[in-house]
């Protein structure tokens, strides 16, 4: 029930943003559509509704956004330099790392963050093992690679989602 309600609220907010008006007709139709989708798909919501209400998690999310934007800009400048340099400055490889995040949604966000940060792209997630395509393979073994790639994110994502 809680999941369905959370789904309904999210769907309704997206609807209101999409139509961007508060006329009563739009609101009524939006509520109807959100109710229908929540009734059908609500049980697939991949997070516990109780977590949405805790302010500590929202605070960590706010802290995470600037970190993420900074890493993202760094990644793009890095890739731009590689593209513009006359020789190919790449040494690619696929490495395996281990995460200690538990919930699925946290792992999804971890994978997305990895894809958008310097020189790495998630290829596959199996339980707690992630396979990463790394454009310039650095550290040798698995723990060192894990630390180099997901160190900064795991700290924040564990506080936001787990």
């Amino acid at each position: 029930m809680g999941k369905r309600f959370a789904y309904f609220v999210m769907g309704f907010v997206v609807w209101i943003v999409l139509v961007y008006t508060l006329q009563y007709q739009e609101v009524i139709v939006g509520a109807g559509v959100a109710l229908l989708t929540a009734a059908i798909f609500g049980r697939h919501l991949p997070l516990k509704p109780g977590k949405l209400l805790s302010p500590v998690r929202w605070f960590w999310l706010l802290v995470y956004i600037p970190v993420f934007v900074y890493m993202c800009l760094k990644a793009n400048i890095d890739v731009a330099l590689r593209v513009l340099s006359p020789g190919l400055l790449i040494k690619p490889g696929i490495v395996k790392i281990r995460t200690r995040l538990k919930s699925d949604i946290a792992r999804v966000f971890l994978a997305n963050s990895i894809t958008l940060t310097p020189g790495t792209m998630t290829v596959e997630i199996k339980e707690d093992v992630l396979y990463i395509h790394w454009i310039e393979v650095g550290a040798g073994d698995m723990t060192a690679a894990s630390k180099a790639i997901i160190g900064p994110f795991e700290y924040f994502l564990a506080r936001i989602f787990d």
Partner: peptide, 9 residues
């Protein structure tokens, strides 16, 4: 790698 990072940002 290049395409997804740069195009997303």
């Amino acid at each position: 790698q290049a395409a997804t990072k740069c195009v997303t940002l």
